[in-house]
């Protein structure tokens, strides 16, 4: 009994220590974001890696999501004789939820793990320590640039995912009936309002920030040994995915309060 209790308190302790560490790390990174020097070269490099290199993945997934979602929802709406609501319904689900969350999860899988592994390898081969002892602020150069890049580029990836998702939906609708792009867009946008777009965009910014931050945190705190690089990459994906859903949960409640539905 006592053993179990101590085990529980022990794991609770590690959890809180982890949370505390992440918070401290976040504070430090944010400080670095606002203090110089600003590494635009590194930012462009990371932005290229995160933005351009992830775009095909996002585009394919977004297209398939839009297509599949439309094809799946169509029979139900046809039963109700409401297939004219399909574009609007798909637009709302893509822009409010599917676009941001699928993009974020893919980025967690690709970018978060990538950053975790890269920084983990740098940590294990003492490159981060080398930067630290030469006073070159690795938190600024390595971490802040990556976190800034994900924060700025994940929302843009989300825009692409939204657009391509709607394209997929348009293709799906046209498999069954012929509908002009104009009518499709008109119907899609009729169901949308700013209270759909703005929270989704803000949410995406947070997704981006935490995708970068968690990858960097996990990489930065890698233990010794090559094995830990894999562990870091892995736990970066898991933690980032979890955090994405938590943010999503918070976002839906906050936007509910703000927009009062």
């Amino acid at each position: 009994m006592n053993m179990m209790l101590s085990k529980i308190t022990g794991s609770l302790n590690t959890f809180f220590i982890e949370v505390g560490n992440i918070l401290l790390f976040t504070v430090n990174v944010v400080k670095q974001l606002f203090s110089g020097p600003f590494e635009h070269k590194e930012l462009i490099k990371q932005g290229y890696q995160i933005g351009n290199k992830t775009l095909p993945l996002i585009a394919i997934t977004g297209f398939i999501m839009g297509l599949v979602l439309s094809l799946q929802s169509r029979p139900v709406l046809v039963d109700f004789g409401a297939q004219s609501l399909l574009p609007g319904m798909i637009a709302v689900s893509i822009i409010r939820e599917i676009g941001p969350v699928i993009t974020a999860l893919l980025c967690a899988g690709k970018i978060s793990s990538g950053i975790g592994a890269e920084l983990g390898a740098m940590k294990v081969t003492e490159q981060l320590d080398a930067m630290e002892v030469s006073g070159t602020k690795p938190l600024n150069f390595v971490v802040a640039s990556r976190v800034l890049a994900t924060t700025l580029l994940v929302p843009i990836l989300v825009f692409f995912a939204d657009a391509v998702g709607l394209l997929g939906s348009f293709v799906a609708v046209n498999m069954h009936e012929s509908m002009s792009v104009r009518l499709f867009m008109s119907q899609a946008f009729n169901s949308l309002s700013f209270s759909d777009v703005i929270p989704a965009t803000i949410k995406s910014v947070f997704f981006g920030f935490f995708i970068g931050l968690i990858g960097a945190y996990k990489g930065y705190h890698t233990d010794k040994g090559t094995e830990s690089v894999g562990i870091s990459a892995n736990s970066a994906v898991v933690t980032a995915s979890l955090v994405i859903f938590i943010i999503d949960l918070i976002a839906v409640q906050v936007s509910d309060i703000i927009y009062g539905f």
């Binding site: 390898a121 740098m122 320590d129 030469s134």
Partner: peptide, 10 residues
Amino acid sequence: YLFQGGALYD
């Protein structure tokens, strides 16, 4: 500080 592996930035 010279590290064991040289710690060059890959």
